[in-house]
């Protein structure tokens, strides 16, 4: 009886060790190509590509099952990057999708009935609130995927375009008159006078 137990225990330990070693040695790494593609995708998780999120789309691209031009939030630049990564030709955004300006969702808190449907829809947990309590979007975490807009039974969610503020302002592409053109923008007009144009 005892010897039988010992034999069984011994076999169990030996097999466990083999399995453990194999798990480390032959670990299946996350597919690096999928990760590389996923790193380019904007992580909006909006599903406009026809897949339930960025990662599934990345997986489909890696498997050659999806085109690289299906992501409207990523825009042309995203397509360029994907094309470069995969050694493919650039192609314009597929379908009739047009890239929209970046927006965040906004809940009209007076109308919100606290149904939690939007919370369930949000792919990045960017909505705070509980049942029968009004909900709020955590704007800094909202990816602008619009997935919460449709489920709202009282239509209190709207998308607001992110305004240009001093904190997110960018220098514009220089628009230079090839020949003198009147500019209405004071800043622009004066800019043309500075930057290396000390008077002679």
């Amino acid at each position: 009886m005892l010897s039988a137990l010992l034999v069984m225990a011994g076999i169990a330990i030996a097999l466990g060790a083999v399995l453990g070693y194999a798990a480390i040695k032959f670990r299946v790494e996350g597919n690096p190509l999928v990760d590389k593609i996923d790193a380019i995708l904007p992580q909006t998780q909006c599903g406009q590509c026809g897949f339930p999120g960025c990662k599934p789309y990345a997986t489909a691209i890696a498997a050659g099952e999806a085109d690289i031009n299906k992501c409207p939030p990523g825009g042309e630049e995203g397509i360029h990057k994907l094309a470069e990564l995969l050694g493919m030709e650039f192609k314009p955004l597929g379908g009739n999708a047009v890239p929209k300006p970046k927006s965040v969702a906004f809940i009209d808190e007076a109308t919100c009935i606290g149904c939690t449907l939007c919370i369930q829809a949000c792919p990045v947990d960017a909505i705070a609130g509980a049942a029968k309590q009004m909900h709020t979007i955590i704007a800094a975490e909202c990816t602008g995927c619009e997935l919460c807009v449709a489920p709202c039974p009282v239509d209190c969610i709207s998308m607001k375009v992110i305004e240009e503020k001093i904190t997110n302002w960018k220098w514009k592409y220089p628009v230079y008159a090839l020949n003198t053109v009147e500019t209405t923008n004071v800043a622009g007009a004066a800019l043309q006078k500075t930057n290396g144009r000390a008077p002679g």
Partner: peptide, 16 residues
């Protein structure tokens, strides 16, 4: 016709 804050090389034109 305008004002620059800083020098002529690196300054910024004032919006007002």
């Amino acid at each position: 016709d305008g004002y620059i804050m800083g020098g002529p090389m690196m300054g910024i034109p004032l919006p007002s």
